[in-house]
Design a protein around this nucleic acid. Structure first.
Lengths: 236, 236
DNA sequence: GCAAAAGTGTTAGAAGTACACCCATGA
DNA sequence: TCATGGGTGTACTTCTAACACTTTTGC
């Protein structure tokens, strides 16, 4: 890690996936940078910001290092910067060790990003000693720093964004998905229940959702039709 | 300015007012900290973040110094942090001079806040040498740093927020306001036109807007009824 | 009395809500 | 054949959109 870094500003990424029932977050372990023992607590993937990159670039770098993905919509949603973010001394020490900082960290402001991923994509284990893991929101352990707060803020932000523009949610679904996958996803994001019949009607009116002639296979009940998402040409 | 500051992180505040026709932004002049010549270009009010305060506190401090207001909803809406923010060398030098920094500033990340104010409130001229001024958006000069971008991002953010929760807009109106004041405000935020009759119908259904028995005075046409805003008890 | 903005009702179409039963499949 | 989730239609209500004339006031 030879590049010059800004020791006061980081990005942290809330990578969200949906497994058909609930949201999952990709968390990593706080390990020393040499790889080795995985005893640290879990945290969000993140990094200090390099001097020659902007915030979006830093967030994309983190995502790419962790998953290999590059063409992903990373949404900045909030900065967290209270002096109490490092109140657990282990967190500060870990940062200093991991980034080989010379001086003591008093304060770090983080810019939080959120990204919606298909959970089936393979995750790389990083040489940097990352150990990435999808964890259901409900079973999320206490994370390092204020990362637990950041995750909750991300969920709240995604609700607002999906209300304004539901099409962002399709990043979470497989390329072919069933009506009930979409319905359950929307229900859990927006925290509502849809009537099933009415949902089908609404689905038929969504220009950006097109029914396929293909059906589910190998399920022990009537097979569901698949749909796919088609990006609207203008004005999401 | 003896407090310890974080030389890498600032807050900038987009203070918006509505004069009945258009949005105005409160801009200040880049002056030296000793007061004196007002030759600098305009910028948004802002400050580096002190080591013992969180981001919200820093933003409220800036607002209070400039206007004396304290109980105001300051909404964080985005961080700006590209390395090119200081591409105009004057901006960086001004910051160094103003804050009496010892070392050269290479990079500064700013957390942008936005706040909606009644434009009639009196603004203080600060001993710090601020010269605050409401400026209509349409006549906004090129601002220092990337502050022009920040203003546009604020306007876009307010549209999203008002779509999700129109009640934030009442901070912009006088305590008593007419139907057309509200209509023109909403039209300019949401970038739509409302049919006047339909708007009155909609107004009558807004629980949080109550008609008064009072009317305009001294206008050379039929006097308009006043309304007032009543905070909803739960769930804005 | 005239200029200027305020205020008012109806109708037609679209969208949303509530509700109960049969269908296809694998085990 | 049964358990499981998939899929369908109708009636009612609510919301939205379009549209033109009369009222009040100061000058």
């Amino acid at each position: 890690m030879s590049e010059q870094i800004n020791p006061y500003v980081s990005v942290d990424c809330v990578l969200l996936g949906f497994d058909g029932e609930q949201f999952n977050v990709l968390v990593v372990r706080q390990c020393s940078s040499g790889g080795g023992e995985s005893t640290g607590s879990y945290k969000l993937p993140g990094s200090l910001v390099y001097m020659d990159e902007n915030l979006d670039e830093a967030a994309h770098r983190v995502l790419k290092q962790l998953t290999g993905l590059t063409q992903v919509n990373m949404m900045q949603f909030r900065a967290f910067g209270g002096p109490d973010r490092l109140k657990n001394p282990e967190d500060g020490m870990w940062l200093e060790r991991f980034h080989h900082l010379e001086h003591h960290l008093e304060r770090i402001v983080t810019i939080a990003y959120m990204s919606l991923l298909r959970i089936d994509r393979k995750m790389l284990k990083l040489e940097g000693g990352y150990e990435a893991q999808w964890t259901p929101l409900a079973q999320l352990p206490k994370l390092a720093f204020d990362h637990s707060d950041i995750v909750h803020a991300a969920m709240s932000s995604i609700k607002d964004r999906a209300t304004l523009n539901p099409t962002i949610l399709f990043d979470l679904l497989p390329k072919k998905f069933t009506a009930s996958q979409l319905r359950i996803l929307m229900e859990s994001v927006l925290d509502v229940k849809f009537d099933i019949k009415n949902f089908h009607k609404k689905l038929a009116q969504m220009r950006y959702v097109v029914p396929l002639d293909e059906k589910e296979d190998g399920v022990s009940h009537r097979a569901a039709r698949y749909y796919k998402f088609r990006k609207p040409r203008k004005s999401m």
